[in-house]
């Protein structure tokens, strides 16, 4: 036997095992389980809380942040209108971008050399030109082509003819630029997700004779979503703030509106705070949505879904409420 301290309570021998000289068989059934302690975690918590408190203190007490100005402008009508434009641009170019991206991803993966090369070229062009240049090109299309004519190429047959400047407004240029750019990036994200789906799934769908579009949308895409969603939400959150680039078109979304105001009032920092807080609010809502959407698409991939934070909180409260004071000494 090795040199271990033997607890007196554990000396109790298992019946039928007496007299064999085997002291290792002990009965631990009366023992209480003591959870592992994490002293460094507690210390770390104190340090982090201290740092957070000091940052918060400086934010609240430094008068140069001008919180009164922030509060005054936060829900001002012009700001809310700008916010609405930002949300509208994000929603429209985000959803159109991902829709087009999905089609481009399917084209890229199709066996048709025509489809896959068209898709490749699209991504190549829109990923290799700066978004700023794309936006300005769309907006100045009227300079390059004064009229847009719908007809048969290389003949004089014309069905409709329009002034380019009336067709491409600031809004149209912004949506076109953001959507096409977004589509090029999301095509690659969606393609990556589709490639992550087990080949056997596609084979089984083929063997069952499920039509191609149905196979893509019902069998492959939902399973690809688990790989697509984290990166896709990155893109959408990036797009929310990325829409601020359309200020070059003097389009009055949130960031442009803020700039116009601080150029007039000279209250630069508080106005930037107004925009920042709104971006934080949008991002927070999107992050919560991301959590639940990811959870939705993990159905079937996990045997049982983990509880949501709300369910965890409810469980925590119900288990701790009945136990009374947490540090009541155990009998």
């Amino acid at each position: 036997m090795t040199l271990t301290t033997v607890d007196a309570a554990a000396q109790k021998q298992v019946p039928g095992n007496t007299g064999t000289g085997q002291a290792s068989e002990r009965d631990y059934s009366d023992y209480k389980v003591v959870p592992a302690r994490h002293p460094w975690r507690w210390l770390g918590t104190v340090v982090v809380a201290g740092l957070a408190a000091s940052v918060l203190y400086s934010l609240l007490t430094n008068p140069r942040w001008e919180w009164d100005v922030v509060a005054q402008w936060f829900t001002a009508e012009s700001i809310l209108r700008g916010l609405g434009q930002t949300l509208k641009l994000t929603l429209i170019s985000g959803s159109l971008g991902f829709l087009l991206g999905f089609v481009l991803a399917l084209m890229r993966l199709s066996s048709s050399p025509l489809f896959s090369s068209v898709s490749w070229t699209f991504s190549w062009i829109f990923r290799s030109t700066p978004l700023l240049v794309q936006l300005l090109l769309w907006y100045n299309l009227g300079y390059l082509y004064e009229t847009i004519r719908l007809g048969v190429p290389f003949t004089s047959i014309t069905f409709a003819e329009l002034q380019t400047t009336t067709l491409i407004s600031q809004f149209a240029a912004a949506v076109l630029g953001l959507t096409l750019n977004q589509a090029a990036y999301s095509a690659e994200i969606i393609r990556g997700g589709i490639l992550s789906v087990d080949q056997g799934q596609i084979e089984a769908a083929e063997a069952l004779g499920i039509p191609r579009w149905r196979r893509s949308t019902r069998i492959v895409l939902p399973q690809a979503m688990r790989a697509i969603l984290p990166t896709a939400f990155n893109e959408i959150i990036g797009l929310v703030k990325g829409t601020s680039i359309v200020y070059v078109l003097a389009y009055s979304e949130l960031f442009y509106t803020v700039q116009v105001i601080y150029n007039r009032t000279q209250q630069v920092l508080p106005m930037l705070l107004v925009a920042t807080i709104w971006y934080i609010v949008i991002t927070s809502v999107l992050s919560i949505a991301q959590y639940y959407i990811e959870r939705h698409y993990s159905r079937g991939a996990l045997r049982t879904l983990p509880p949501t934070p709300l369910q965890k909180l409810r469980r925590f409260i119900s288990t701790h409420a009945v136990k009374g004071p947490a540090n009541e000494p155990a009998r």
Binding site: G200, Q201, A204, A207, I219, Q223, Y297, R299, G300
Partner: peptide, 9 residues
């Protein structure tokens, strides 16, 4: 199939 290939979702 050998690996069943049921649609997991």
């Amino acid at each position: 199939f050998q690996n069943f290939n049921l649609f997991g979702h």
